[in-house]
Nucleic acid binder design. Structure first.
Length: 414
RNA sequence: CGGGGUGUGGCCUAAUGGUUAAGGCGCGUGGUUUGGGACCACGAGAUUGCCGGUUCGAAUCCGGCCACCCCGACCA
């Protein structure tokens, strides 16, 4: 991508109406724009990160046999009345059609997927199945806050699995738990598997918590066992496995996994026939990852005074090439030439690269903006190329650049 | 929903109740620049959140509403 063509805008000043680090940086760097409290637009840079996260999730879920679909976000009232949640679900956005039909904007999709799965399942031979989507969710939060961490509209991956019995749900849930750890790892985060309450619809759940001071949850973490307990269920501050003292940490919940049992199958009468021709209720689990929240959490963990430091797999681009603008026209042409050569070379190797080809911008401004945007690898082509035929290579997290030969570049970004 | 705070060009800010609301960033034009958000000149851009009140006169005082931020409550 040529930076001269990229549609974005960065800001020197922090927005006055944002306190959280993730919101300040994502707005300043041109990834998102605020529309209202808890409601954001995602700009070209921002959607690239979202897509990266989504595709990591897709890859890992597909590996364990999950299949993607897309469910409606307009939920007729009757579906939610069947589970009693039309009244009970306190953050439900409700809306009316011109003819008076009532709907909710989807805050979660059990009410839609259980009736769907009912049509797909007849026999034990049809089980188990696991379906997921990556879609927008709406929750009428009384207090949206902290940039992307608690929104009224957000993107979520929600996975639902359907099984013959409870043991099968538990077994699958463990597989999802392991997969979640992998997904978060690929996003650069060490999420902690955390035991938590299941809310209204499950006796317990597993949360995936990212320790950071920006978090609104409090967990008690065992360094030895690498697991934690949510504050809401903790009894004594000792690890249940190894009895060691637990560490209190603030954290962000980026995912959760629930065993739903038969609760929704009962509400929507989702049955299957077993080998002995007995009609039985389907057992189910549900598993969520807050995609946009995850993006916010990544920024909370990876930033410095200059800007964002995107982990490699979720960065909007992998390499940022900066063409230094120098006085001499002849030298400048050389720089542009070699820059374009490297650019095309990297593209041919399927490496995503942003090249700052703007001619009317000072090198200083390019560098500052580059740090703010936070692409993991940066190459500057300037005086050092003219003098020594070398390019400057620097990781975003490094303090100093090193001079390298152009031919060696690929060794450094692998 | 309770408490606290804040609303001024796109962004960040300034302005004892007193001319035509000031500056910086950004933007446009021209020029000088170009290794860490450079400089000069000219220019475009505002019903000071909304409604009402007090006053000769309101960005400024008063009332109501709205929005945003923070703390709390809530959070499948």
């Amino acid at each position: 991508m040529l930076q001269s063509k990229l549609i974005y805008k960065t800001y020197k000043e922090e927005p006055a109406d944002e306190e959280s680090r993730n919101a300040k940086l994502l707005i300043r760097a041109g990834f998102i724009e605020k529309v209202s409290a808890g409601i954001y637009n995602f700009l070209p840079l921002g959607i690239r990160v979202i897509k990266k996260i989504e595709n990591i999730i897709r890859e890992e879920l597909n590996k364990i046999g999950c299949q993607e679909l897309l469910l409606t976000n307009l939920h007729p009232k009757e579906y939610w009345e069947k589970t009693g949640r039309w009244e009970k679900f306190d953050v439900l956005f409700k809306t009316k059609s011109q003819t008076g039909s009532e709907y909710s904007l989807a805050p979660t999709h059990e009410e839609i997927i259980f009736p769907l799965v009912k049509k797909l399942i007849n026999s034990y031979k049809d089980l188990p199945i696991a379906l997921y989507q990556i879609h927008t969710k709406y929750r009428d939060e009384l207090r949206a806050k902290s940039g992307l961490l608690r929104n009224r509209e957000f993107i979520m991956k929600d996975l639902y699995s359907f099984h013959k019995n409870n043991e099968e749900v538990e077994r699958f849930k463990k597989i999802v738990d392991r997969t979640y750890i992998k997904i978060f790892k690929r996003c650069g985060l060490n999420a902690v598997e955390t035991f938590a309450s299941g809310g209204t619809f499950s006796p317990y759940s597993t949360e995936f918590q990212v320790p950071t001071n920006a978090g609104e949850d409090i967990i008690y973490y065992c360094k030895n066992c690498k697991v934690a307990w949510n504050k809401e269920i903790i009894e004594e501050k000792k690890c249940k496995n190894c009895k060691r003292e637990l560490e209190e940490l603030k954290s962000i919940e980026v995912g959760n996994t629930f065993n739903l049992g038969t609760r929704f199958s009962e509400a929507f009468e989702v049955y299957f026939l077993d080998k002995d021709n007995n009609r039985k209720l389907v057992y189910a689990g549900c598993y969520g990852i807050g995609v946009t929240r995850l993006m916010g959490a990544i920024v909370e963990v990876y930033n410095d005074e200059k800007g964002i430091l995107w982990p490699e797999e979720v960065a909007p681009f992998k390499v940022h090439i900066i063409l230094a603008n120098i006085k001499d026209d002849k030298k400048n042409r050389k720089i542009v030439e070699i820059g374009e050569k490297i650019y095309k070379n990297l593209l041919n190797k399927n490496i995503e690269v942003l090249i700052d080809d703007r001619e009317d911008i000072s090198t200083g401004e390019k560098l500052v903006e580059s740090d703010l945007i936070g692409i993991p690898y940066r190459i500057v082509i300037g005086e050092n190329f003219v003098k020594y035929k070398k390019i400057d290579f620097k990781k975003r997290k490094d303090k100093k650049y090193k001079l390298i030969n152009i031919g060696d570049l690929l060794k450094f970004i692998k």
